[in-house]
């Protein structure tokens, strides 16, 4: 058996267990569709229309590493005086990787006093979330944040 083109897998205990585990996991997990960045763009257009999106004024905070994708804290702050004639009207959170691109929509106004919202989201893997804010003058502003997810939502629990 000195044929150099023939390289059999050495079936020791580790490779066997690894292969068996992989097969079992693939059989158990439901097939899951992931949204694509294009679907996230489409979801943004569906919520806010075709107006141009400016970068800035929206600050998004995610932990640099999320150990559990089932619950990741997100803090959103928008630069706005939140006065009667200049305030944030709507905020949307969008994922390029979750099964559904739209995660949440918030509607607020001058009564908020401060354009600041926090919640907890599910993330189906490492990704960059986009947050879009619609101002009272109709302009759209965008911010984003990236987090590395060690245990993705949906896979376990």
């Amino acid at each position: 058996m000195d044929d150099p083109t023939f390289s059999p897998i050495r079936w020791n205990r580790r490779t066997l267990l690894g292969a068996a585990g992989g097969t079992a996991l693939a059989a158990v997990l439901p097939p899951m569709a992931e949204a694509t960045p294009e679907e996230a763009d489409a979801a943004i257009r569906e919520m806010f229309g075709d107006k141009p999106i400016n970068e800035g004024r929206v600050w998004v905070k995610l932990p640099p590493i999320a150990e559990n994708g089932n619950s990741v804290a997100i803090d959103i702050t928008v630069d706005s005086p939140m006065s009667d004639d200049d305030h944030v009207r709507r905020i949307g959170i969008f994922s390029p990787r979750n099964p559904i691109a739209t995660i949440a929509e918030f509607r607020l106004g001058p009564h908020a006093g401060r354009a600041q919202v926090s919640t907890r989201v599910r993330l189906a893997g490492t990704q960059t979330l986009r947050v879009i804010a619609e101002m009272s003058d109709g302009t759209l502003w965008a911010g984003k944040a990236t987090t590395y997810v060690t245990l993705a939502a949906c896979v376990i629990g």
Partner: peptide, 23 residues
């Protein structure tokens, strides 16, 4: 008066939590 509203999708974590401000 309604001062804050949210629409949730399945991407919001279990036991949905919100923090926001009011004047």
């Amino acid at each position: 008066n309604t001062v804050f509203e949210a629409t949730f999708f399945p991407g919001i974590a279990a036991n949905p939590f919100l923090a926001f401000c009011l004047r």
